[in-house]
């Protein structure tokens, strides 16, 4: 008996955490067996087992792979662009007061407003194809990267800068030897946010006027009342986001070895 108690005590957090998720799925599954749902509700209702079956069916037919490929491409190109733009701009704004002051109004305004409001304009400019989605992914992901890089640069220890300067280092060396390495934890935290925003951009971008991609698959399914297909999409996005978030968090905790202080971002 004590063996069981000890086993539970040591793993309490995992048992409770996983237990709750399992319980949630089980209750969801057996609701229709318990209560007979009214006609209006049962139309929108599905269960985990039906979603899983649908997932398997769509995988076997290759439908998911086809849509996934388009979404992944938008994600990769958009995120790549945002890294290519966000990092250098973050560094420049962090090191140059004048550039910072000149661009601050735009950064503040664009960052405070959900970038999705630009979607109709992007569709006019880039069409309903893949490029308007790439651009919305880019717009969503670029600001967390830019702002976190900026914050990293701004927080660099003055003593370290003075130290390398005292050895005759020029601005380029100061960047390479101190500023950039110092900003890495901030940039990684920014990357975690950027990935979330990029996934959001893919989903929402594809809701509107697209025929390919997981978001489009969901939107089309929703208008045909195929609720289980919608949930398949939700589950895929959930899984992808979790994998990314956990991976980047892992990288972040490896960086804490020399991390100067807790980098706090959401």
């Amino acid at each position: 008996m004590t063996g069981v108690v000890n086993f539970y005590r040591e793993r309490e957090s995992h048992i409770l955490g996983i237990g709750f998720i399992v319980l949630f799925l089980v209750v969801w599954e057996i609701i229709p067996l318990w209560v007979s749902l009214p006609r209006g509700v049962s139309l929108f209702f599905t269960t985990p087992s039906k979603i899983a079956a649908k997932f398997y069916q769509l995988m076997a037919a290759g439908t998911i792979q086809e849509h996934f490929y388009v979404s992944a491409w938008e994600f990769v190109v958009g995120l790549g662009l945002s890294i290519a733009v966000g990092l250098p701009f973050g560094l420049i704004l962090g090191r140059s007061r004048t550039m910072d002051a000149l661009l601050d109004p735009y950064v503040t305004a664009l960052n405070a407003t959900p970038r999705l409001v630009w979607l109709p304009l992007l569709i006019i400019w880039f069409g309903i194809g893949i490029w308007s989605k790439i651009m919305i992914v880019f717009l969503g992901a670029v600001f967390p990267l830019l702002i976190n890089t900026y914050a990293g640069v701004k927080n660099v220890d003055r003593v370290l800068i003075n130290m390398v300067r005292s050895f005759g280092a020029r601005e380029w060396h100061v960047m390479k030897i101190v500023v950039l390495p110092y900003s890495v934890p901030y940039i990684v935290a920014g990357l975690r946010l950027a990935i979330g925003r990029a996934v959001l951009g893919v989903v929402v971008g594809e809701f509107f006027g697209a025929t390919k991609g997981l978001g489009a698959m969901m939107a089309i399914a929703a208008s045909a009342f195929q609720v289980d297909v919608v949930f398949v999409g939700v589950a895929i996005f959930m899984g992808i986001s979790l994998i990314f978030t956990l991976t980047v968090k892992k990288i972040e905790s490896n960086l804490t070895r020399w991390r100067p202080e807790q980098v706090k971002t959401f």
Partner: peptide, 26 residues
């Protein structure tokens, strides 16, 4: 905390906006 943290973390990390079509439907 133990009970709810993993569940909520999973929900917070995922793009809940993906539920939009369903919510509008319902």
């Amino acid at each position: 905390e133990y009970t709810l943290d993993p569940f909520f973390t999973a929900l917070y990390a995922s793009p809940l906006v993906a539920l939009a079509p369903l919510i509008i439907l319902i």
